[in-house]
Design a protein around this nucleic acid. Structure first.
Lengths: 102, 102
DNA sequence: TTATTTTTGACATAAATTGTCAATAGCATA
DNA sequence: TATGCTATTGACAATTTATGTCAAAAATAA
């Protein structure tokens, strides 16, 4: 199974598109250092940045966002023994909210 | 399905045990105001506090922790369109980590 | 009313996140 | 080696977010 982080994926995509950190950083208006750190998981990504990068790299935005969000979740509760149970409860809660609210 | 927050649950447990905020706050060494806010979801709970409260109320710690963790997840990504997909990916990731690491 | 419990909000402190920058490292090529 | 470009690292300030403390106000019960 995939053990690839979203940072790895974004780096690969950037290289595939033959873009430098400097160029991409300029495109999305952030510091080169930050983009470098984001690709290596040292700084957190944001939803907005993921979306911008998906566009630049012409890659499926949804896939990247799902990866981004799931990584956030794992980061939050991943090392808990009860993580799996908690995720299942969270799923049910979200499903319930979807029918009820909005 | 359950739409009860962990705060509601903790409040109910406290009342069932006929304890005041003041007494419980003293037992776990936090300010009364904070405990009040935690029960009403205005301040975040911590794992440690949930565990202490479970002990005081003689209630299943695991159940409360699962509720606490799942609420954290829902808070983080619950309003995302891709939340459910993200949770499924997160689950797979955690399962994978369990076999591989540790 | 009086006593007790709970809620609210203001404020200060602490902690985490983020942005900026410059120095350094790495790598390719002349 | 030297040059040029790219990427990494770390220090620092600025900002944001979380946390602790307290007292006044509101709610509740006797």
């Amino acid at each position: 199974m995939s053990t690839e982080t979203i940072g790895d994926k974004l780096r690969t995509l950037r290289e595939t598109n033959e873009l430098t950190l400097r160029k991409v950083a300029a495109l999305i208006d952030i510091d080169v250092a930050i983009l470098s750190k984001m690709e290596r998981g040292e700084r957190r990504l944001t939803k907005q940045i993921v979306q911008k990068l998906a566009k630049i790299y012409k890659h499926d935005t949804e896939e990247l966002l799902v990866l981004y969000l799931s990584e956030k979740v794992v980061y939050e509760i991943g090392d808990e023994d009860l993580a799996l149970k908690a995720l299942q409860v969270a799923e049910e809660q979200i499903k319930y909210n979807k029918t009820k609210k909005k």
